[in-house]
Amino acid sequence: MKSSHPTIGGLLRSLRARNKWTLKQMSERSGIPLSTLSKIEHDRLSLTYDRLQQLSERLNIRMSELFAENEDVGTPAVTARRSVGRLSDAVRVDSKNYEYFYLCPELRRKRMLPSVARLRAHSLEEFGPFIRHPGEEFIYVLEGTVVLHTEFYDPLTLQQGESVYIDSNMGHAYVIGPDSQAATVMGISATDDDQSVIEALMAGEGAR
Rank of each mutant, 00 (worst) to 15 (best):
S163T: 14
V78L: 14
Y174K: 04
K24E: 15
A17Y: 06
S88T: 11
N19M: 09
I139Q: 01
R82N: 04
R132S: 15
R82C: 06
L12Y: 05
A80D: 15
H5V: 02
P76I: 03
V84S: 00
Q160N: 12
T48V: 09
T184I: 05
L45K: 10
Y174H: 05
P129R: 07
A203G: 08
K96H: 11
S196M: 07
G9Y: 05
L148T: 07
S88N: 13
G135D: 04
E28M: 12
R132M: 13
R132N: 10
E205K: 08
V185T: 11
Y153S: 14
V197G: 00
E199D: 15
G204T: 11
D50R: 05
G206P: 02
E151N: 11
N70T: 01
Q54K: 14
L148S: 06
R132G: 01
R132F: 04
Q54Y: 08
L103G: 00
Q53F: 09
T75R: 01
V91K: 14
T184A: 04
P33A: 13
L23S: 00
G177I: 06
F152I: 12
R120Y: 13
T75M: 03
M1H: 10
A200S: 15
I188C: 03
G171V: 10
Y140W: 13
E28C: 10
A77F: 12
R29C: 05
V116G: 10
F67N: 03
E151V: 10
G177E: 05
L15V: 02
S64H: 14
R108L: 12
L103D: 02
L34T: 09
N19G: 00
S4W: 03
A80V: 09
E57D: 14
K24P: 01
H172W: 02
Q159K: 12
S83T: 13
D192S: 12
E199V: 14
M112G: 03
G31L: 09
I61V: 15
E69A: 02
E126M: 03
V93E: 10
G85H: 01
L119A: 05
A183L: 05
K20V: 11
A203M: 14
V84N: 01
A68Y: 02
G161I: 06
L113K: 02
H42Q: 14
S56N: 12
R208Q: 13
S83M: 09
R92I: 14
Q54S: 15
L103P: 00
S189I: 14
D167L: 10
Y153A: 15
S30C: 08
D192K: 10
L119V: 06
R82A: 06
A183I: 02
V73D: 00
L55Y: 09
V84W: 08
L59T: 05
D154I: 03
N70W: 02
S3G: 15
R120I: 08
S14G: 07
L201F: 04
Y140E: 00
Y153R: 12
E28P: 09
G10H: 02
I166R: 06
G10W: 00
D194Y: 06
R29W: 05
Y165R: 09
R92E: 06
Y140G: 04
H149N: 07
R86E: 14
R92L: 08
R44S: 10
S115Y: 07
L142F: 01
R82H: 14
S115T: 11
E41N: 08
E151Q: 13
M170H: 06
T75E: 05
